[in-house]
Write a protein that binds this DNA or RNA. Structure first.
Lengths: 239, 239
DNA sequence: CCAATAGTGTCTATTAGACAGTATGCG
DNA sequence: CGCATACTGTCTAATAGACACTATTGG
């Protein structure tokens, strides 16, 4: 009989072959009417020179979870933290990375373009790619599939929540949220439906400010501090 | 400059400290009016003797993905494959396993009780625990949190799909599906609403058989082969 | 025929879609 | 004052909830 203490004293984690573990993030933003995903150029082998998702290995000395790893890697690239971050899926198998059996924990993130554009613009190994241009790229590893999973999550969740607010600056108008939603869904939505949802959600509050848009001034809104995302029980665009 | 081939030749995966990776599954079934989760008694350290989720290490020689690992471990315990299996979430951190920084990929699974009861009944280290009795158990590691995540997924998805069919035998009546749904949601639903959804989903077909229940015979239904799950655009019980 | 369960008809409630109508601000 | 854009009112459509009604089967 071995006690747990004795067992742990003699435990050697390297005795069994273990997969290569990485953490990758699909970070979306909206810019100039386009939904864009953040890509980084791989500086080292394998697949050196290819574009792929921002990510890398867990630093078990510093990261308290894979969320921390995702945040750390994104902060390195964008300069700031995403406004939204949730786990997406894991992808695994013997073939997806030439170094061997590998597993990546993927995260799904949103950020407003104005919040991170300055930093991205100054680095040459990171860029925003419009998702409609993805077809022309051969991404590293299976990152194309991970981006597709992220797109699917984004579009689904946009149908039953106000998730697109996390792609907008701190304050925004109804029209901006409508445009963000329409870009993500790829089709127009009813402004009235959106405004009804904003009221029902309890997620947003007026700042009291207005902005001129060339005609009647539009009220500015922001996320209520400490209020969680609201999930609706019906979808938009339920054909 | 190193080519990818040269790089891979010299690559040593064990150079960097890597997390301990496991795969665990939350397998639910319905039995005697109760929602139950499969637990196994840990035969070895750490946490020997505690009950926890069926799972274990990836066998990189045999498993083509963590789905394969989940299936392999479930098959060892239940004797057969679950009717539903989807990825749930990953849980990670330095404290969740006493052996060190660890990560588990959790899977969410459903099975009909009649399909696996015979095998479970013959093994002493596995059992079905009604979820309402979970409070009295100290599960191994953070498995209590993983079970809660599974329960949440099950209840959410039951609101916008016919997921409970995967807890039923191959053929079943409307009344059985209604009862399964009510046990999962913990409250009664309208039979008419359920039947409307069955028709609209296109997921089920009549077998042509009927069963006597003590009164009028009930028609039997089964999942149409090759037909995927249907997601509704509105929830049941949208208070 | 009666009891019990299966299955249907149909009215109401809720919320999205459509779109017309009103309000406001600037030239 | 006119126009563009912001915002509102209100009708329709789709689908869930409620519940009464009919159908079938065994005794």
């Amino acid at each position: 009989m071995t006690t747990e203490a004795e067992y742990l004293k003699n435990y050697d984690a390297s005795r069994f072959p273990s997969p290569l573990v990485t953490v990758d993030s699909v970070l979306f933003t909206l810019h100039q009417g386009e939904l864009c995903v953040l890509l980084v150029e791989r500086a080292s082998q394998p697949q050196q020179g290819r574009w792929g998702l921002p990510g890398g290995f867990i630093d078990i000395k510093r990261d308290a979870s894979t969320r921390d790893t995702a945040l750390r890697k994104l902060t390195e690239k964008t300069g700031i933290s995403p406004s939204w971050l949730e786990q997406l899926d894991t992808f695994s198998g013997p073939e997806r990375d030439p170094r061997g059996w590998s597993l990546t924990v993927s995260w799904f993130a949103l950020i407003s373009w104005v919040d991170c554009a300055p930093h991205i613009a100054t680095v040459s190994d990171a860029k925003w790619l419009p998702v409609r241009s993805l077809a022309g790229y051969e991404l590293a590893f299976d990152h194309a599939a991970i981006v597709q999973a992220g797109l699917h999550r984004l579009r689904q969740k946009t149908m039953y929540s106000l998730l697109p607010v996390y792609c907008l600056p701190e304050t925004f108008t109804h029209a901006q949220l409508q445009e963000a939603t329409e870009i993500i869904l790829g089709q127009p939505i009813q402004r009235k439906s959106l405004i009804r949802r904003i009221e029902a959600s309890g997620m947003l509050e007026e700042t009291g400010e207005s902005v001129a848009t060339g005609a009647r001034k539009a009220r500015l809104w922001r996320r209520k501090p400490g209020v969680d995302i609201h999930l609706f029980s019906r979808n938009l665009l339920a054909e």
